[in-house]
Amino acid sequence: MTFDRSEEITEALHDQEGLAIAMANIIAGLDLPSDREHVLLALIRAQDQCRDRAIVAASRIVQSGKEKRGR
Rank of each mutant, 00 (worst) to 15 (best):
E67K: 13
I44S: 07
R45G: 03
E17C: 09
T10F: 15
V39L: 14
Q16H: 03
L32V: 05
I26M: 08
A54E: 06
E17T: 05
E8M: 11
Q16E: 11
A20V: 06
T10D: 14
R36D: 11
T2A: 13
S34G: 04
H38T: 14
K66W: 10
A22V: 01
R45E: 14
I61S: 05
N25T: 03
D48S: 09
A20G: 04
L40E: 01
M23F: 13
I9M: 07
R5L: 15
E7P: 02
I21M: 02
L40V: 06
A58M: 07
F3S: 06
I9G: 06
E11G: 03
R5D: 13
E11L: 15
A28M: 00
L32R: 00
D31T: 02
P33C: 01
L43D: 14
I9Y: 02
G18K: 02
A28W: 00
I61K: 03
I27Y: 04
A42P: 05
I44Y: 07
A20K: 03
I44L: 03
R5M: 12
E11K: 15
N25K: 10
D48V: 01
V62D: 04
I27V: 12
L43S: 11
T10E: 14
S6W: 03
A57I: 00
I9E: 01
E67Q: 12
L43Q: 15
I26Q: 09
E67F: 06
R36H: 11
R51F: 04
V56R: 07
G65Y: 09
E17G: 00
A46Q: 04
G29Q: 05
R51P: 05
C50P: 03
K68D: 02
D4Q: 13
L30Y: 08
G65R: 01
L19H: 08
I21A: 09
S34N: 07
G65W: 02
R45S: 11
H38I: 09
S64N: 14
V39S: 08
L32T: 03
I21L: 06
Q47A: 13
K68H: 12
S6N: 11
R51V: 05
K66E: 14
G70I: 03
L43V: 05
A20W: 01
T2K: 11
G70W: 08
V56A: 10
N25D: 12
G65Q: 05
I9R: 04
L19Q: 07
S64A: 15
Q49V: 08
D15R: 10
L13K: 11
H38E: 15
K68M: 12
K66L: 12
R69N: 06
L41E: 09
A12H: 11
E67A: 13
L41V: 00
R71W: 02
A54W: 05
D35F: 09
S59T: 10
L40D: 07
L13N: 06
A58N: 04
S34M: 00
R51K: 06
L30E: 02
S6C: 11
L19S: 08
S6Q: 07
D4V: 10
G70L: 13
A54I: 02
D4S: 12
H14C: 01
I55Y: 05
